[in-house]
Amino acid sequence: MSTEAAINLEDLPTLRQQTICGEKVYQLEDPTAYRQLCERLLAAGYDFPQCLSGVDMEYGLRTVLHLRRLSDQAELTLWLDVPYDRPHVPSVSDLWGGVDWHEREAYDLVGIHYDGHEDLRRILLEDHWTIHPLQRRYDTGGYLIPDWQAKPWPDWDAIAKEKEEAARKAAEAAEKRAAAAKAKAAKAVKPKEGEGGAKKPPLSEVKKTSDQVAKPKAAQTADDLTKIKGIGAHYVALLKEQGITRFEQLANLSDDEAKRLEEKMNFKDRIAREQWREQARALQEGKS
């Protein structure tokens, strides 16, 4: 996290940060800013180019770049939207050799032009083809869809606001449901089990709601620690040896304690890397 903070994001226009399904996403609309950000990210140690995909968003074309830092396995996603009539994106194949063919493929199939690419030729289709078949205006067979129309460019501010609103509403609804469940649990004699996996809202709320419904019971009994990603049956046993059986205990570990625990159990930075404490906190909040 420390290196991430060192990246200067202030002067980059049109940059939005968001987290989607656990992925950190930097969204951009300005090609120059994209190039600058990529250079800074490389300097910040994002050395492993995972993937570059072109997506036709129906209002424009999007380049999605997935980066990884091998030193701490941090992952990052970059979005850059360009309009159909100016599908030009600065190439980053000189920064990461690994995106060379990905850019050629995105040019070939989606039609994004990567400026500065050394050898921007078609890669999968033949040189004399003219269509970019992965655009939505073409059907699966590569023929133009007669009444296809591009969508207007989205208003990102409005969307962000809407999202916030939706998240707030979801949280409220979850609270209500939790309260209802509590009341129900107080009435019902036996607690409901096994309802967890079936119907779930998107991942951001997964942990909270499922546990609210499933485990309305008292806090002092042992929790199901395997709900935390990275903890399996083996580690549950090890943690039990150290006297840790509940989310609460795990969530409230200080850095020193965590380090001691890791040393004792031979974990090697797993608590921080897999964010056990954060996960445990989320689960704990969901429970109470």
Binding site: I20, C21, G22, E23, V25, Q50, C51, S53, V55, V64, H66, E75, T77, G197, A198, K199, K200, P202
Partner: peptide, 29 residues
């Protein structure tokens, strides 16, 4: 685990696994 696959609009995910030839990733939008 049986359950309905309902994915909200705008959700996206890149997941990778180590297959015999290396990192096979899938980007779903």
């Amino acid at each position: 685990a049986r359950g309905r696959v309902k994915i909200e609009a705008g959700e996206q995910r890149y997941r990778a696994a180590e297959i015999s030839r290396g990192q096979l990733g899938v980007y779903i939008h």
